[in-house]
Amino acid sequence: MSVLTVHGLNVSAGDAELVRDVSFTIGKGERVGLIGESGSGKSVTASAVMGLLSEELTASGSITLNGKQIVGMPERQLSRLRGRDMSMVFQEPMTALNPAMQVGKQVAEVMSLHRTQPDRRSARAAAVDLLGRVRLPDPQRAAKSYPHQLSGGQRQRVMLAIALANNPSLLICDEPTTALDVTVQAQILDLILANTNDSALLFITHDLAVVATVCERVLVMYNGRIVESGLVRDVFTAPEHRYTRQLLASSDLEATDENGRLRTVSHD
């Protein structure tokens, strides 16, 4: 049985449709990439799955997580699922942590909150363990530091620790490596791979190389629709949709057009 099933999802802001008729499933232990340009509806889709759409946006269709319907679920029930059954890593590690709270506390909190640790002390110990698992050097000390004392890569590790704290069945990563430099990116990707064996993973990015490294299947979004989907190998070797072909061509850093420039995606 699949962990996440999205069927006929529409998200609109008033008359404007941001996401149109999106359907996909992710099974247990499966890693799916969601690619597409900025504004194509990737993040909106992820927010809809988390039930975190802002008030101006309305979702229709069906999203089920382990058989539970997310669309239209009351906030109180949603907040019980978030952080326990599904969690999310955000793009910007500089702003996704509370600047006024020690990071160890922020990790421990997500466990005490969902009562996955019996008391404060064991949550605290588990937080230090997790910080070690995401390979923060000296986790004891790291737990006591504030976000501004950590580097971008270290903060993203903390975010990952928070997301993984309760062994969620679904982990959504919304461009988790975009804000990091290349060497740190590779380390974070390794960590995500090493820690999500049983979880379903939805990995949003516009970096095709990252998709090739992390994912088994890929969904290509364009203008609010999924225009292509399939195994990474198939989609990347034999793209069917014009946009996918252009996207792949533009990521080839050795091919140039007739003017000697790198290829880009055309919009018409």
Binding site: M50, L52, E75, R76, S79, R82, S87, F90, T95, A96
Partner: peptide
């Protein structure tokens, strides 16, 4: 801010 969004994503109540 994103950390409030992140806190909601972690299941915090209002």
């Amino acid at each position: 801010t994103e950390y409030v969004l992140a806190a909601r994503a972690a299941g915090r109540s209002r």
